[in-house]
Each structure stands twice: as structure tokens, then as C-alpha cells.
Design a protein around this nucleic acid. Sequence first.
DNA 1: TAGATACCTTATAG
DNA 2: ACTATAAGGTATC
Length: 302
Amino acid sequence: MEEGHIDVASLSGGLDLQATVESGQSYLWDREDGQMYEREAASGGDAWYWTTVRVDGEPVVVQARQTDGRLEWRSTIDAEPILRELLGLGDDLVAIRETATDEAVVEEAYDAYWGMRIVREPVFPTLISFICSAQMRVGRIHGMQQALRREFGDAVTFDGETYNAFPTPETLAAATEGELRDLSLGYRAPYVRRTAEMVATGEADPADATGREYEAAREFLTQFVGVGEKVADCVLLFSLEFLEAVPLDTWIRTTIEEYYPDCERGNYAETSRAIRAALGGEYAGYTQTYLFHYLRSGGRDH
DNA sequence: TAGATACCTTATAG
DNA sequence: ACTATAAGGTATC
């Protein structure tokens, strides 16, 4: 086993690990205490979290927690570069915030969860988890990913415990719609199976969205079954580093109605351009994610 | 090409 | 207890 830590003070804008992994950007982390989404982490937010990543195709467990000004980690390999990538630790939050509008609700959202970062999760698990997100609450989306891991993921042993990696495209493609429906995926079951098949057979690779112009990349991702413009934006933002992507979900639509009514243009593409510009352009997705988490967790009533 | 509707399942509100 | 409603929407007509 290897372990180490990163000094949070060395990061521009610091870090809020709990907000980063429990804000609905990623459904691929778990809390060891099982209290994901349920309450503030015990004793000052220092709960251990874990996820798996694939290194040369082999799943590896990575554990992390934030305590005493440090991001501590444990793994079977040197996980520091992996965590810097996954958790967006290289992002200059101070500079990014300066690009955002100074609307009061935006300032409140940044203040409430300052240190929250945009994740860069592996693209296939991200694609599947956001296909599952349609018409779902965050706790249940997370539960679906746990179920997929439990039923279809390879077992990985770490520190005497058994974990399950997120299933491969091949494994999910081989699952039946019925098996997936048994995990309470509902109408998303055939979407997940078919998209996994598209990736497994090489019909299309979601990673190929990288390098395209933003709107072309979004269009590219909608070829996957169950992926519309909103889910495509989530994959671009939370996996492929398109920090300008602003997923138009139910929360940001409410925000548009209330604070940016001029940005409502009647269709996704035009409204997306308008709100992207209004939120600051290049890093608009950052502001969207702060707004989403702030409003969903209670906003000004909280 | 825009607009309306069905869709799985569960948690929460009334 | 029981029904209506909504949940980080998409596919289809």
C-alpha cells in the first residue's frame, strides 16, 4: 500500500472535497461511512471516500479524505497524479471566479462552497451515470451506479477489503435489458445497454469528443442512445474538460427564469449560448456547478 | 423543423 | 393510507 497527502494550502482557492464529490458532478465516489448525500461528513468533513480508476485496463482503488489542511490518499499505487487529475486540483479557482458575473446569487454560491472543483471523471462511467440521471434525484442516481458496480463490476481487493470497479463497456453490453431493469434503471435500461454496446464494439468512442469545438462535441455525444443535449453537456463538463459547458437542467432553468430571463431563447442551443455568455464564457460551467449545488442544497433558505 | 407525449421507478408532499 | 407530483430528460411521433 502507498499513501501520501497534498497540502490544500498549495491549491489556488483551496479544496472542498465533500462538495466536489457529493455535488452531483460525479456518481462514482462512495463514502466509507455510507452517509453519502445524507448529512455533513462527521467531525468536520473528514470522511474517507473511495473510487476506482483503470490503469492500463486494471482497476485500482483510490481512497481520499480531507483533514487538517491536507488531502490524504491511500492506494496500491502513487495516486497523487490521479487525484490531481480527477479532482481538478490544477484549476486556478481564484482566476476562474474572477471571470464569473458578480450577480449576488452567484457570489453566494461561490462563498457557500468555496473550494469545490469540477471533476474529470473517466468518460465511460460518466456517460453511463448521466444516462441514468434522467428524471432522477442525485441519491438514486448514485444508488444506480452502486448497483451497476455490485452486479457487473470486477472485484478489487485493497487493504483486506473487497471493492467493485465500475463495469466495462463489454460487460454492460452483455447484460440484458431485464437485468438492468432489475436494478431499478427503468426506461434507462435499454439506453445503458445499447450505449455500452456502441462503445464496446467500437461503433463510437465518447473520448473522440475531445478536440472538437464545444458545440460540435456536444452534438457528437448525442449519437449515444439516451444522450440528449443536457446529458452531453454533463459528460463534456465533468469528464472531458469543457469547462464552458452549462448543462441546462431543471435547476439552472429555474435560475434562468428568476435571474436571467433574457437568456431564455425557447430552445436548448440558443439558451445555452446566452446563459454561457451571461455566466462568464470560458468557465461558465464552473459557475453553473456552484449554482446547482447551492440551490439544490437549499440556497438562500439554507 | 418545432411541439407534444410517453416513459420506469421511487421519494415526498398533500 | 392513498394519490399526485417531481426527480440534474430523451426518444418518438
